[in-house]
Design a binder for these strands. Structure first.
Lengths: 210, 210
DNA sequence: CTCTCTCTGATTGTCGCCAATCTTGTGCTA
DNA sequence: TAGCACAAGATTGGCGACAATCAGAGAGAG
C-alpha cells in the first residue's frame, strides 16, 4: 500500500514532530530528495501535504521551511481545541457503553499511577491515548480530523508543558473529572470538564513567557 | 504572482462549489489538464490541495472524484461549526469596537430588509458576510481557517437549506440575537446565541431526509 | 451456468530535464 | 562611504515520458 511518496511524507512528518528538523529550518527539495533517496517530485508532494497540515510554511518560489508556532499561535490553537474537545467529550458521554466506560476508568487509574510514580513520559503517553480514545468514542470524524491536525502543530509546546514541574498533578485531576463525567453519561458536565482542562492548559501556556 | 497551478486550483474549486462538477464525478487528470489547458502536474497539485480541503476524495492509484458530503456528514460538520463559531462570537464580543458594532448592526438591518422583501439570494450573501465578519472580528486565525475549510464542504447543503420556505425568517432572528450579543460586548451570550443558531441549522438539516 | 484466471486498456505515480524566479555578491557611481 | 544596477549561483515551478498499478473484459475449466 505505502507508496514511496507516502513513505517520504511520513518520514518528514516524523522528523519534524520529533524535532530533527528545527523550527524555521529551510527545507530544500534537492537535499531532502537525497536524504530520503526519493525523487524530487515525491519530496515536493510531501512538502505540499505538510504545508496543508500546518507543519511547514511554503512561499512561492522561495521554498519551504519548518513552521515555527509562536506561543500566541499555540494559545489560539488551544482555544479551538478547547471547544472542539468539549464537543467530543459531550458526544462521547452520550454514546459511551459500559465496557468502554470501564476502559476509560482503567486509563484514569494508570494515569494516577504514572503521576504517583513520577513517570512523566508514561503520563504523557497516557494523556495522548485518553484524548484519542475520547475522540474515537465521540464518533465525530470531522472533529477528530480537526483535532488531529491541530495537535500535530503544537507537539513541541505540549511537550515543554508536560515537562513543567507540578503540571502533571494539576492536569491529572482535570483528566479524571473528564473521565468521570463521560462515564456518568453526562454530556453537559463532560463538555465543561473538557473545556476546563483546556482552559487550564491555556493558562499554563500563558504562564511561561520565557 | 498567480502561478498557473494556482489558477487551476481556483478554477477547479470554483467549478466544484458552483456545481459544474457533480458529486461523485470522476476527475481524470488528463481530462482536466486538457480542459484547463495546463500540464498534468499542475492539475495533480491542485487535486492534492482540494483533497486536503475536503472537496475531493483521492484513492491510491484509483484517482480522484468530487467528494459527496452526506447529510450525516453535513450534520457532523455543523456540530463542529457550532462550537467553533461559538468561540469566534465570544471573542468578537470581547474585542469589538463601537465602529465595528455599528457595522454589524448595519448588516443586521440589511438582513431584515432582505427577508422582508423576500430577497433570498441577497439574504444568503449577507449571511455569509456576517459569519465572515464575525470570524475576522474574533482575531482567531486558527478558528477562521477551520471554519473556512468546513464551510467549503457544505456549500451545497447550505444552499438547499437557504431555499427552504420559512427558513430565512427563523434564521434572521437568530442572527440578530448574535449581533445584539456581540455589540453588547457579552461573550457568554454571544457564544450561546451562535451555538443556538447552529443548533437550529442542524435541526433543519435533520428535518429533510429526502 | 458460474467461477477463476489472465490479459488488455486506461489511469495514476515517478523521474529527469529545462525554464522561471529569487538571493547574494560584486563593482560602479555619486 | 552609501546606494544602486547587474550578473552569477542556487532553488523552485512546470513539462513530457516512462513505469507501476488497477478495473474490467474475455477465455477456459469445473
Amino acid at each position: 500500500m505505502s507508496s514511496d511518496s507516502g513513505a517520504v511524507l511520513d518520514a518528514m512528518r516524523d522528523g519534524i514532530m520529533r524535532g530533527e528538523f528545527v523550527p524555521d529550518q529551510r527545507l530544500v527539495e534537492t537535499d531532502l530528495s537525497e536524504r530520503f533517496s526519493a525523487s524530487r517530485s515525491s519530496v515536493r508532494s510531501a512538502l505540499q501535504q505538510l504545508a496543508n497540515e500546518g507543519l511547514v510554511e511554503r512561499i512561492q518560489n522561495r521554498g519551504a521551511r519548518v513552521r515555527a508556532v509562536s506561543l500566541a499561535e499555540a494559545i489560539e490553537i488551544s482555544e479551538v481545541r478547547m471547544v472542539v474537545e468539549g464537543l467530543c467529550a459531550a458526544k462521547a458521554a452520550e454514546r459511551v457503553t459500559p465496557a468502554e466506560a470501564d476502559e476509560l476508568r482503567e486509563v484514569g487509574a494508570r494515569m494516577s499511577a504514572a503521576v504517583a510514580s513520577g513517570d512523566v513520559l508514561g503520563y504523557s503517553d497516557l494523556n495522548r491515548s485518553l484524548h484519542r480514545r475520547i475522540r474515537e468514542l465521540s464518533g465525530q470524524a470531522t472533529a477528530g480530523g480537526v483535532l488531529e491536525r491541530l495537535r500535530a502543530q503544537i507537539v513541541r509546546h505540549q511537550f515543554r508543558l508536560a515537562m513543567q514541574p507540578g503540571r502533571p498533578a494539576v492536569s491529572l485531576n482535570e483528566h479524571l473529572a473528564i473521565i468521570h463525567a463521560i462515564c456518568s453519561g453526562d454530556p453537559e458536565t463532560a463538555e465543561q470538564a473538557a473545556r476546563g482542562h483546556l482552559r487550564s492548559v491555556i493558562e499554563a501556556l500563558r504562564a511561561y513567557k520565557d
